[in-house]
């Protein structure tokens, strides 16, 4: 069995100890909320989905098996909920509007790139860069987006990302490679229309 204090808490909850569940909820509610927020970029949806994740932990406790870190199991549930709910659930319409907006809201064009190094003109202010990252994330396919969030914002190793999204380490390496190169290019592109 995995040596993880959270696994012990989950097993205690499985045996009926509600205080153990409360401890897990308090520990993970903010990280999980922010993880989902980075994915869907909507506070209201993120709050509802993160609560759905904890509800699922509560109701599916009986089928929990301690064969991985608790956080791996929790984030797998979160990723499943994100992928399914936003694709086909009640948030679909709202969410699609947002993604379309992120895709076409700004028009970027590749800068004429002779030097291949960052010069003063190429550097974007922090706010603009933040906006571009959010747009870049929204434009990625769902699994790629999750992988990039896990790597950039949670600094997780490829192996753990693979466990969370259900991919091999090699597949994660390829996803991260493409996503990070795209992100790099996007952060260096100049905006055509101000």
């Amino acid at each position: 069995m995995v040596h993880d204090p959270d696994v012990q808490l989950m097993l205690r909850f499985q045996r009926g100890d509600e205080a153990a569940f409360r401890q897990l909820y308090e520990k993970y509610k903010i990280p999980l909320l922010n993880f989902i927020f980075r994915y869907c970029q909507d506070r209201r949806i993120a709050e509802e989905l993160s609560q759905d994740v904890f509800l699922r932990v509560y109701t599916k406790a009986g089928s929990y098996r301690p064969d991985a870190m608790f956080s791996t199991w929790l984030y797998r549930i979160a990723i499943n909920i994100c992928l399914n709910e936003l694709r086909s659930g009640k948030y679909r319409f709202e969410y699609e509007l947002k993604t379309v907006d992120a895709d076409h809201g700004d028009k970027f064009i590749e800068a004429p790139d002779h030097t291949r190094s960052i010069n003063a003109e190429d550097k974007l202010d922090e706010e603009e860069r933040g906006k571009r990252v959010r747009h870049a994330l929204a434009a990625l396919p769902p699994k790629h987006r999750v992988a990039l969030i896990c790597s950039v914002y949670e600094q997780l190793p490829y192996k753990e990302i693979g466990r969370r999204i259900g991919c091999s380490e090699a597949a994660v390496k390829s996803i991260i490679h493409r996503s990070k190169l795209a992100l790099r290019d996007l952060l260096r592109k100049r905006k055509l229309y101000e």
Binding site: F37, G130, R134, Y153, L183
Partner: peptide, 9 residues
């Protein structure tokens, strides 16, 4: 340079 300066979400 670009990846180490990805703005915090």
């Amino acid at each position: 340079e670009t990846l180490s300066a990805v703005p915090a979400f």
